[in-house]
Each structure stands twice: as C-alpha cells, then as structure tokens.
Simulated assay, not measured.
Amino acid sequence: MILILASALALISESVVCDLTPQGHDIPQHGPTGFTVACPADHEDAAAIQSAAEAAIAAIILPLPRPGRQDGNPPPRLWAASELTMQLGNGSWRPALAQPMVRAIPWVPRQAIQQGAAHMLCALAFTPDASGVDQQPGVACISDVSTDLVERHQRASMTQAASLWRFAPVPVPYCFNHQLLTSATPTYPATRRRQPPPAIPDPDLLPNLCEAG
C-alpha cells in the first residue's frame, strides 16, 4: 500500500521500464556501489527518459554503510533491483513511487530461534527522502512464538535491515507500507523426530504503520 502525503499528485499518462545493472563486488553481502541504467532507445522521448533516469539513480546514496553483526547475528542479505519504471506526469519523467532499488533481508535472530521461533513477519513503513532513504522506518514484528524477548530481537534485526533499503528518488512525499516474511530452517538431532514446520503468523495481525502515522 502507498499513502500519498502530498496534496496533489501529477496525472500519470505513460510508463516506461528501464534496465538497471548493479555495480560492485559481492552485492548480496555489500550491496551495490551504484547502477548503470539503459532506457528504451526507440522511444520518441528517449533522451528525456534516459536523462531523468540517470539523474534519479545518481541521487541515491550509495554505497551502503557496512552492516555489522547485531547481537552476534549475521548481517542482512542484500538485493539490488534490475529494473526502474519511469512515468510521465505533467510533462516530465520521473521514477514511479515505492520502487526499492536496494533491499536488505535479515535472518531470524538466533536469540529468537533459541526460544523456538521459526518465522519473523514484519510490517514496514517507509517514508523515503529526496535521496530515496528512510533512516528511521517504522517496524512492527510478530512471530510464531509470541514473547517480548522474541519480538524485541526480531524488531531490532528488522530495523537495522530496513534502514539499509534504498528507493528510487521522487519529488513527492509518500509512505510505503510493506510486509516482509523471513524464516529459519530448524535443525533436529538425529535422535529426534522431525516436527512439522510451525504455522506462519497471520499477516492481518500486523498494523498498517502508514495509516497509524
């Protein structure tokens, strides 16, 4: 869900998809250092689209700060986008809203696993700035094991990861509500019978943090 915070949004009349190539070494661990972008050259407005896409990509703050281990847990896994959608509105091209250029996916914290948790389902609320960054995203998490200890460690892990997300910059303030599930694979001693996996928590139990303000 996307909540528009501006008083008016330009009427979108056309969309074009551009190809992105992430730059950098070991992107799943370090994230991209930047992107190159290639928009359709056969479009009648190709030069304007390419120029606007390059300007948007250049505005993203990269490389990412190096994510560290938190409470002994491994850093989040990183993902880089391969496409950028550009939209024409009021005569100018700009990225579509709520396009993650970099995502960070945390592991289920070991402290939660030790308490028997297998799933971490979180609600995220992003309000990216003009460079596509939200340093303090809203986070709320639930699990198949509902204790304060489990939820505290899961929320801390997800908060660290969410601060590493990067969005395509747009000139319109908005809030993007997103849900993210990550799960652990349990291991069993050879002498213990394998148990069926716990049920994933009900997504309807999570709040919409954009609406909650």
Score class of each variant (00 low, 15 high):
2 I>G: 13
2 I>A: 10
3 L>V: 06
4 I>C: 09
6 A>F: 00
9 L>W: 11
10 A>P: 11
11 L>A: 07
11 L>D: 07
14 E>K: 15
14 E>H: 14
15 S>N: 12
16 V>H: 07
21 T>A: 11
21 T>S: 12
23 Q>K: 05
25 H>F: 15
26 D>C: 14
27 I>A: 09
27 I>R: 04
29 Q>G: 06
29 Q>L: 12
32 P>I: 07
37 V>F: 08
37 V>W: 06
40 P>G: 05
42 D>S: 07
43 H>K: 15
46 A>D: 02
46 A>V: 02
46 A>R: 01
47 A>E: 15
48 A>V: 13
49 I>V: 06
53 A>Y: 11
56 A>R: 00
56 A>C: 01
56 A>K: 01
57 I>Q: 12
62 L>M: 12
62 L>E: 08
64 L>S: 01
65 P>V: 04
65 P>T: 05
67 P>F: 10
68 G>D: 12
69 R>Y: 08
70 Q>K: 09
70 Q>E: 13
77 R>P: 06
80 A>L: 13
82 S>V: 10
82 S>R: 15
87 Q>S: 12
88 L>Y: 04
91 G>V: 11
91 G>P: 15
93 W>V: 12
93 W>C: 13
93 W>I: 09
98 A>M: 12
99 Q>H: 01
101 M>V: 09
101 M>T: 06
103 R>P: 03
104 A>T: 03
106 P>E: 04
106 P>F: 06
109 P>M: 00
109 P>C: 01
112 A>V: 05
112 A>N: 07
114 Q>M: 07
114 Q>G: 08
118 A>F: 06
118 A>T: 09
120 M>D: 02
124 L>R: 00
127 T>H: 14
129 D>H: 09
134 D>N: 00
136 Q>P: 04
138 G>K: 06
142 I>W: 03
142 I>Y: 02
143 S>R: 10
145 V>R: 01
151 E>Y: 13
151 E>C: 10
152 R>E: 00
155 R>Y: 13
156 A>L: 13
158 M>P: 03
160 Q>E: 10
161 A>P: 03
162 A>R: 14
166 R>V: 05
166 R>W: 11
168 A>R: 00
171 P>E: 11
171 P>M: 11
172 V>S: 05
173 P>L: 04
173 P>G: 01
175 C>Y: 05
179 Q>F: 02
181 L>Q: 03
181 L>F: 05
181 L>R: 03
183 S>V: 07
186 P>V: 07
187 T>M: 14
189 P>W: 07
193 R>M: 15
195 Q>L: 10
196 P>Q: 03
197 P>C: 10
198 P>V: 02
199 A>G: 00
200 I>D: 00
202 D>P: 14
202 D>W: 14
203 P>H: 05
206 L>H: 06
206 L>D: 10
211 E>T: 05
